[in-house]
Simulated assay, not measured.
Amino acid sequence: MTPTLADRIDDLLPQTQCEQCGFHGCRPYAEAIAAGEAAIDRCPPGGAAGIARLAALLDRPVLPLDASRGIEKPRTLARIVEADCIGCTKCIQVCPVDAIVGSSKQMHTVVADLCTGCELCVPACPVDCIVLDPMPQAQADDRVHADAARRRFQRRERRLARERDARDRQLAASKVDVAAPAAKNAVLEALARAKARKKDNP
Results as ranks from 00 to 15, higher is better:
Gly117Ser: 08
Asp7His: 13
Leu120Glu: 06
Asp113Arg: 10
Val176Arg: 13
Gln106Pro: 00
Arg162Leu: 15
Pro28Arg: 11
Thr4Arg: 09
Asn201Thr: 12
Ala48Asn: 09
Glu37Gln: 15
Ile9Val: 12
Pro64Trp: 05
Cys91Glu: 02
Thr2Ala: 13
Gly46Ala: 09
Asp59Leu: 05
Ala6Phe: 06
Lys199Tyr: 04
Arg193Glu: 15
Ala6Trp: 05
Arg150Met: 07
Met107Phe: 03
Asp66Ser: 08
Leu54Thr: 03
Val81His: 06
Ile71Asp: 09
Leu57Glu: 08
Thr16Val: 05
Ala149Ile: 08
Pro181Cys: 00
Leu132Pro: 00
Lys73Arg: 15
Cys26Ser: 14
Lys175Asp: 04
Thr76Gly: 05
Arg162Ala: 14
Ala179Val: 00
Ser174Leu: 13
Gly22His: 04
Ala148Gly: 01
Glu37His: 13
Ala138Gln: 13
Arg152Asp: 04
Cys121Asn: 09
Glu189Thr: 08
Leu160Asp: 12
Ala124Thr: 10
Arg158Cys: 00
Thr76Trp: 05
Gln154Val: 07
Ile80Arg: 09
Leu12Ala: 06
Lys184Leu: 11
Gly22Thr: 02
Pro134Gly: 05
Val144Trp: 02
Glu189Arg: 05
Arg158Thr: 10
Phe153Asn: 04
Val144Ile: 07
Ala56Asn: 13
Arg159Ile: 10
Ala35Gln: 15
Gln137Gly: 02
Val176Gln: 06
Pro14Ala: 03
Val131His: 02
Ala183Val: 11
Cys118Gln: 05
Pro123Ile: 03
His108Met: 04
Arg42Asn: 11
Asp98Leu: 03
Leu77Asp: 00
Arg158Asn: 08
Met135Asn: 02
Gln139Ile: 08
Cys18Asn: 04
Asp66Met: 07
